[in-house]
Design a protein around this nucleic acid. Structure first.
Lengths: 217, 217
DNA sequence: AGAAAAATACCTAATTGTTGGTATTTTTCA
DNA sequence: TGAAAAATACCAACAATTAGGTATTTTTCT
């Protein structure tokens, strides 16, 4: 790595920050540009300084890490947020990643993995601790491909056709008209779709279709 | 990196494989354990050998890379699939990641980024080429931040709240109950949502919400 | 050719959604 | 402190959806 990575540390434990600094300073490519013991100070610093990676302890007081992550992501999108946490809870990690965190590491991670994670997020990757990842299908969940959609979910050709039109916002009478069917028939297919996909209304059907990537939306 | 990373290369261009091997051999931590020029051979090798990372050319003949990715992910989940591709199409990359790929690199990537990507996927991260990522909302930074959603689309907090519940398949009475509101009120908000997002029914709302990534679905 | 699956169509009743209003209270912010 | 925005609530009428069926025709596949 030729270029220096500018790192800012936000953690409420002074000793932890010190240890982390020392650890990071063993690598030439890392440059600690600042530190803060609460979220507000961290945000303030970002306004006036170039920071590549914000290492953020998620147990910080004052302003919670979740909020800081959101703020940083929306106001300083170029800053990568790397979360350090004690929790291996996958849902928690997932939520943070969705709020804009680029990485999630549990605190007792080895230094090599930490270095790796920093490089990874700087390169636009996302990094998640192994301990967290194995707890759930947080990464790389296996969705069925579009072409075997019908097969996988046991939908017939007609059902798939009607589902597509539903996603487009069409009503039963409209679908009936465009497919030259009786509204009754369309409704029968809709009933079968609700049953097969185990949802209770059109919202569920639309959601299912989009999330499982049936549509080209 | 103390531990050796066992790499298998699957690509139909012999010269490309050779170049890649030479490139990877400049780093002590990488060990090329094998190579294949079609998907079937690659899968066969995995059955009898320890492989950490499978570098996979997505333009391989015989068995397409998409299929190999799926197979590897389901049969050898411990093997990280790193895709090499010529295409910067984000949808394509996304589909592959969903099939179980751990990383996606375009072929004219620099060696440092390649090394980085390998380390990243081994550590359970996901790596996506910058060139691909910036083309779409594949990674978080390019999506409108969730908290700006309301601002971007002029939705109020309450409207966003109700939209989320609609996507979950809830009916007006149900939403009213969970938010301690009159059904009348929920319906007013729904009317405003339909107007603001310019769709004509709930299917449109759900579709909009998911496509614009308001939800965590 | 015969069975199974898919597609078609119909009926009723209850619930939910949509449209087009009006109007008051609460919150936010300049 | 006002004005504006947001949130709340109500009414009526009509359209659409959902749930519970039954039943015939057409297509697919062995």
């Amino acid at each position: 790595m030729r270029t220096t990575i500018h790192i800012f540390i936000a953690d409420d434990h002074q000793m932890f920050v010190d240890g982390l600094k020392r650890l990071l300073q063993t690598r030439r490519e890392f440059h600690i540009v600042g530190e803060a013991y609460d979220g507000a100070s961290a945000l303030h610093f970002l306004q006036n300084n170039q920071v590549d990676v914000l290492i953020l302890d998620i147990n910080m007081p004052g302003m919670d890490g979740m909020e800081v992550t959101k703020q940083v992501h929306s106001h300083f999108p170029e800053v990568k947020v790397l979360i350090l946490s004690m929790y291996t809870d996958a849902t928690f990690a997932k939520t943070l990643m969705e709020q804009g965190a680029a990485g999630y590491l549990i605190k007792n991670t080895g230094k090599e993995e930490l270095f790796e994670a920093i490089h990874c997020v700087v390169k636009n990757g996302q990094y998640i601790s192994k301990e967290v990842a194995i707890k759930s299908s947080l990464i790389a969940e296996n969705k069925p491909a579009r072409e075997d959609f019908g097969k996988t979910y046991n939908l017939t050709r007609r059902e798939g056709e009607i589902l597509k039109l539903l996603v487009q916002g069409k009503t039963s009478p409209e679908i009936a008209e465009s497919l030259y069917l009786a509204t009754y028939t369309v409704d029968t297919h809709r009933k079968n779709l609700l049953r097969k996909l185990n949802v209770k209304n059109t919202a569920g059907l639309v959601r299912f279709a989009i999330v499982h990537d049936l549509m080209n939306v």
